[in-house]
């Protein structure tokens, strides 16, 4: 009996050690850190990245418009089957925001989903898309964020039930779903490559437009094929050619003005996306449209 108990204790310890090992936060390697530190920021381009990345959609106060979009006090809620997540304060406040983060901290957050202390972020923060961000773009974005105001609103705690409260578990999730591999592959034109970067990466379109599996990972086989709205309210439309028959010009114009080809207008969260995309140069909206038009039919 004592022997069985001893074996069980050892097994439990091995299991715990394996869990601890497999879920450990993995950040940038030394080479990446050195490469990022060697770059010179371009603040103006950082602003373009800010809008391309849609930071303000979730991190500005709910309902913010105009210059208030640049006050990243957080607070927007994202309902999901795993609980409700609240976008944290990422303003330049050193206590309540990210004012004391280095560019490496930001890069680890965006591309590896971990905080400066190694805490795993919940994938409600779209680091599985931001993993595609170029180093230079992160450096530029960091420089732009540093120009934005501090706000001392405390971040709201996520409303997430057990077992999702164990953040270490996200380390396992990351092993399954955090990948730098592109969905659209093959020999792409420069415009399509740019479109892919904006759609699969910075714009994180797949986060809402692609259906998720039972544990919240994106179903890359049904990429951008449309999905249930995680909040439970309506659906997010599919963008594949079997779901969307708009021309490339229609898509680009929608992203600029919010008008559909029938001159209905964007609503819901997409209204935020449009107000971000309106800040991009026209070539970028055209590149996104070209990418959307190049999607294969989803077959579902």
């Amino acid at each position: 009996m004592e022997r069985i108990l001893r074996v069980l204790v050892v097994l439990a310890l091995v299991g715990a050690a394996a869990f601890w090992y497999l879920t450990r936060p993995i950040g940038l390697d030394g080479e990446s850190v050195a490469a990022i530190d060697a770059l010179t920021p371009d603040v103006a381009h950082g602003e373009t990245m800010f809008w391309a990345g849609g930071c303000a959609s979730c991190h500005a106060a709910p309902g913010a418009t105009g210059d208030d979009m640049l006050v990243l006090s957080g607070g927007d809620s994202l309902a999901s089957p795993f609980g409700t997540f609240y976008a944290p304060n990422i303003s330049q406040d050193p206590t309540h925001g990210i004012g004391d983060w280095s560019v490496i901290d930001l890069a680890n957050a965006l591309t590896h989903g971990i905080g400066p202390d190694g805490t795993h972020f919940y994938p409600a923060f779209p680091y599985t898309s931001y993993v595609h961000l170029e180093r230079q773009d992160i450096v530029d974005l960091n420089a732009f964020l540093k120009t934005l105001p501090a706000d001392s609103t405390p971040s709201k705690a996520h409303d997430v039930p057990f077992p999702f409260t164990i953040r270490r578990g996200i380390g396992l999730w990351d092993r399954l779903f955090l990948t730098p591999d592109w969905v659209m592959t093959g020999d792409l034109s420069p415009e399509l490559e740019r479109g892919r970067y904006l759609v699969e990466g910075a714009g994180h379109c797949g986060e809402c437009h692609t259906p998720r599996n039972a544990i919240g990972g994106l179903d890359r086989n049904r990429w951008l094929a449309g999905a249930a709205n995680p909040s439970g309210e309506g659906t997010v439309p599919g963008l594949t050619p079997d779901k969307l028959d708009w021309s490339a010009q229609d898509i680009a114009y929608y992203l600029e003005t919010g008008f559909t080809p029938d001159f209905d207008s964007a609503g819901g969260h997409m209204a935020n996306v449009v107000s971000n995309m309106a800040h991009l140069p026209p070539e970028d909206r055209a590149a996104i449209a070209a990418y959307i038009k190049a999607l294969p039919a989803s077959g579902s």
């Binding site: 309506g234 659906t235 003005t257 008008f259 207008s265 964007a266 819901g268 449009v274």
Partner: peptide, 21 residues
């Protein structure tokens, strides 16, 4: 001028219109 008109439409639709089903 279309941008501002579209922005006004979207601002209200975002806050006060339910999603299309």
């Amino acid at each position: 001028a279309m941008g501002a008109v579209g922005g006004a439409c979207s601002a209200c639709h975002k806050a006060y219109r339910t999603p299309a089903s």
